[in-house]
């Protein structure tokens, strides 16, 4: 698996707590998408919801993995399997979200991008680093989509989502750097937290109307 994150000791435990919060927020987003899908039958919204469900599951896996590792319950092999599962769920979730931004309805495209990224990660020497590289690419595509969407709609709701995804992108870049510097791991989590607070704020704005 090669490199792993350098976690600052003072941050240990907080990361698990934050990951659980991210999991709850993304699951809530999945439920909300399901509600919208129920009213619209729009396949794009279905895929959007599935994307967030996969991301939610990935956070649960990551939090569980970190929790049991902190208490020394997991051996190295189980920890590695947990990390691989986290990578599979997170990358697939991001691939679902990215697929929506493409102007295509061909489901083959979705499976192709999932397959390509998973093969890319699992054939690489440093799987964790490659995973963060791929997820950064996905987040760049998503951020561009949301920036374009903001300039099209020019409202507060679209702006919160654009900023949220830029925070997720910067957070991810910090995880990429956390392979070498432990502080970046904590900063990455805090940036992610800011992003998810903005996503929740957006849901509040949407429901307020």
């Amino acid at each position: 698996m090669a490199s792993n994150f350098l976690i600052p000791t003072w941050f240990s435990g907080y990361d698990i707590f934050l990951e659980l919060i991210f999991s709850i927020i993304t699951f809530f987003l999945f439920l909300f998408s399901l509600k919208i899908y129920d009213s619209t039958n729009d396949v794009k919204i279905k895929y959007f919801g599935i994307g967030f469900l996969l991301i939610s599951l990935s956070y649960i896996i990551k939090a569980t993995n970190n929790y049991f590792t902190n208490y020394g319950v997991l051996n190295n092999n189980i920890f590695t399997i947990g990390t691989y599962l986290y990578i599979v769920f997170m990358l697939s979730g991001l691939a679902f979200l990215t697929y929506i931004t493409f102007k295509t309805e061909k489901i083959r495209v979705l499976f192709f991008i999932i397959l390509i990224s998973l093969i890319g990660v699992f054939l690489s020497i440093d799987k964790v680093y490659t995973f963060y590289l791929y997820s950064t690419i996905y987040l760049i595509i998503l951020s561009i989509h949301f920036i374009k969407n903001y300039f099209k709609n020019k409202n507060k709701k679209a702006l919160t989502i654009t900023i949220a995804f830029l925070f997720l992108l910067f957070g991810n870049v910090h995880f990429l750097l956390s392979v070498n510097h432990e502080l970046f791991y904590a900063i990455g989590h805090i940036l992610e937290l800011t992003a998810y607070i903005l996503i929740m704020f957006n849901l509040f704005l949407v429901r307020k109307i």
Binding site: I36, N149, K157, A158, T160, N202, L205, V206
Partner: peptide, 18 residues
Amino acid sequence: KFLNDYKIIKGFIESYGL
């Protein structure tokens, strides 16, 4: 149901460019 929830649906779709 769609007509009742229209503003919420529209707000959600516009937020994410769906």
